[in-house]
């Protein structure tokens, strides 16, 4: 133990470390809150599953055309793992990883804005509803963008990009969103 004697400082450090851990373990979790809350990812996933109801695809592309029930919408995304826990209705939505040959909705959740721009370039003339979460998404030619406003999520809709893609956005969705044509706010 003589060697430990060289480390008089060691003991208080270990003691302090353990004390901190015990202190922190006794901190009490906060009580329930009446406001409806959601994490960003969860809220975006919910929006992605609501928005298609307010969008009309060209007839041959619309999954709702076949039957009353409709075939599921194919939603392509880059980070599939993070959305997967919130997509639990396989009869309505099929979540796949981009790139895919066919999809109706494309959620561009890449952190790299240049990747987002490159993918938009590729799909902008196809009937694919591009959804993003980037401040430049409207300028890049994306169709629907999530923006944070305080502690709420707001929607931006680029009607010119939608028109180019052959998609019709319902007036209800437009009423709840900020409307853009490319860079310009309408």
């Amino acid at each position: 133990m003589e060697l430990l004697g060289n480390h008089k400082i060691l003991k208080p450090i270990i003691t302090a470390f353990l004390a901190i851990m015990i202190l922190m373990s006794s901190s009490i979790a906060m009580g329930a809150d009446t406001k409806i809350t959601a994490t960003k990812t969860q809220l975006r996933a919910l929006f992605i599953q609501k928005i298609p109801k307010y969008v009309l695809w060209p007839e041959q592309e619309d999954p709702a055309k076949d039957s009353k029930e409709g075939t599921p919408y194919t939603v392509a995304t880059i980070d599939k793992e993070s959305l997967l826990p919130y997509f639990n209705k396989p009869e309505s939505f099929k979540l796949v990883r981009w790139p895919v040959a066919n999809c109706q909705v494309l959620f561009l959740d890449s952190k790299n804005p240049r990747v987002i721009a490159a993918i938009i370039q590729r799909v902008k003339d196809k009937p694919i509803l591009t959804i993003g979460q980037n401040p430049d998404f409207m300028r890049m030619g994306g169709i629907i963008n999530f923006v944070e406003s305080g502690s709420r999520m707001k929607l931006q809709v680029n009607i010119c990009a939608a028109r180019k893609a052959g998609l019709t956005i319902s007036s209800k969705l437009l009423k709840l969103s900020e409307i853009y044509c490319g860079d310009e706010k309408e």
């Binding site: 406001k35 409806i36 809350t37 959601a38 994490t39 960003k40 990812t41 969860q42 809220l43 919910l46 929006f47 609501k50 928005i51 307010y54 919130y86 944070e148 502690s151 709420r152 999520m153 707001k154 929607l155 209800k172 969705l173 709840l176």
Partner: peptide
């Protein structure tokens, strides 16, 4: 956050949901 009550919200309801950090 509880997901079943969230799923019942419509678009307007979702716009009113408070965003919290995970």
């Amino acid at each position: 956050p509880d997901s079943s009550s969230l799923e019942q919200l419509d678009l307007e309801g979702l716009l009113d949901v408070e965003v919290i950090s995970p």
